[in-house]
């Protein structure tokens, strides 16, 4: 899933200043699972904004709602009236949802309430960690299912750097495991260490961010217009 964290409250407050009619719009998919922008979080943020506005004597009307996904057009139908009635929408979706909400409601100010972080997994309730960098050319088959692009701080494909110590990465020795230690351990347990002897060719990064904004077209699925 796409993970995110809520922006600092002071930043959100500054962003919504001047709007007298605000819709806090949660997203019911990824950011609900990572407890950043779902129904509960939209309710808590809207409550906090109302209390803060009241404390400052501001005449702000703040309502909240949550839709299934903000990255698919059809789900916006249920909140169309609320969006149109609002001066601005504070979207608690990931960056995709914020942009798409802005596209669906052209002319409406849509503000981001979250900082989108990474594609990650739920290690346990309350802890999420990165697993995929969306490079567009998956190499997991060569590394025992541990991604060197996402999990090595330098995205090295041919072994660890000198900053790997006791299984931890020099970028943060307390919190970041060395991705290459993980790869080595996994390949050893699979009896596939010999595959790590192979030199990996230079990776074509054009399928990721370096190739510009991505687009996927499935001709067999595109509806005729």
């Amino acid at each position: 899933m796409i993970t995110a964290v809520q922006k600092p409250f002071a930043e959100i407050q500054a962003m919504v200043e001047g709007y007298s009619n605000l819709l806090v719009l949660g997203c019911g998919t990824c950011v609900t699972v990572c407890m950043a922008g779902g129904e509960k979080e939209a309710g808590i943020l809207a409550s906090t904004l109302r209390l803060a506005g009241r404390q400052k004597g501001l005449k702000m009307r703040i309502v909240e709602d949550t839709i299934e996904r903000q990255c698919d057009r059809e789900f916006f139908d249920t909140v169309r009236d609320k969006v149109e009635a609002a001066d601005a929408v504070l979207s608690l979706a990931c960056g995709v949802g914020v942009q798409f909400c802005s596209e669906v409601f052209a002319g409406k100010r849509v503000l981001p309430g979250l900082n989108t972080r990474f594609y990650g997994t739920t290690e346990q309730q309350g802890i999420w960690s990165e697993r995929c960098a969306g490079c567009g050319t998956c190499v997991l088959d060569r590394f025992g299912g541990v991604c060197p692009v996402a999990r090595c701080s330098k995205s090295l494909l041919n072994g660890p750097c000198g900053g790997s110590q006791n299984g931890m990465c020099e970028v943060d020795q307390e919190n970041i495991q060395c991705g290459w230690q993980l790869i080595y351990d996994r390949m050893k347990s699979l009896g596939l260490l010999h595959l790590l002897e192979e030199n990996q060719p230079i990776k074509d990064w054009r399928t990721g961010r370096d190739g510009g904004p991505g687009k996927i077209v499935r001709e067999d699925m595109v509806l005729d217009t």
């Binding site: 409550s47 109302r50 009241r54 702000m60 009307r61 309502v63």
Partner: peptide, 9 residues
């Protein structure tokens, strides 16, 4: 004293 509600809930 806490301010009175203005808008929303």
């Amino acid at each position: 004293p806490a301010p009175t509600p203005i808008g929303g809930k």
